[in-house]
Nucleic acid binder design. Sequence first.
DNA 1: AACCAGGCGCATA
DNA 2: TATGCGCATGGT
Length: 285
Amino acid sequence: MLINPRISLTAADKDLIVQLEDQIDLAQTLDCGQTFRWETTDCKIFTGIVAAKVCRISHIDNRLIFHNTTRQEFETVWYEYFDFSRNYTQIKKRLAADPILKKATAFAPGLRLLHQDPWETLISFIISQNNHVPRIKGIISRLCALLGTPLGEGAFSFPSAQALAAKTPEDLAPIRAGFRAKYIIDAAQKVYSGEVDLSAVQTLPVEDARKELMKIKGVGVKVADCALLYGFSKMECMPVDVWIRRVLEQLYPQGLPECALEYPGIAQQFLFHYARTCPDAFPAE
DNA sequence: AACCAGGCGCATA
DNA sequence: TATGCGCATGGT
């Protein structure tokens, strides 16, 4: 049994109600640049594709409602996906020792890191390079529609490495990924052939895991770290993109504070979201 | 209409 | 090891 004492589950009709001690906010968690496949029209009901299923989740305060979900599904899929074993209340409390991180955590107190599918995460962040978030979402959506399997409701699974391995950049032209198409195919070929072993990456020390992923063309340190953080829950990874670079230069010229070093990846996510979304994250220029 | 985007590969020194 | 450029595409 995975469930910890800070969570309680109640089955109601076909839904599963999950009461958390930690604060959680789906908009903050699902729209902070770590995942690209969740949609909402009203910020109340979120629809996404996880584990090859169309999933709906809503929430009222800290109570999440997993629609049409069993307790067993929660334990095998969602508990890990939402990183529910981790105490974010405690982590945020520690991060608040630094004044800027205190603001960043207060800005999005319901944000959690996700543990997503490694393959999907890897490809998603290959696509992310030198790209905007809205366009990343568009490319991934077209990729799934082109080569995923239909799941009903107009939704598609994320294409497998096998489905992509035999394709050419011309085949991928409709998804308009630009120069990244060849990188996607290289990743598919190496993962499908076993030259890059994603299940090994999970257990490898981070430095070796990073090297393994960087065998793929189009995977540098930053993309590898994003995959390791969001697809393998390697919380020690701290992807440095243009936003985090700006944060480091303008807000932490002396380097990150001590309190950020326990989980650099989590600190990074609060800072990334804060920098990108909060109008007064940076002092006036 | 330039400039930029959750970077990286490659050439050059 | 360190720098600089080109890359596909599209939003601002």
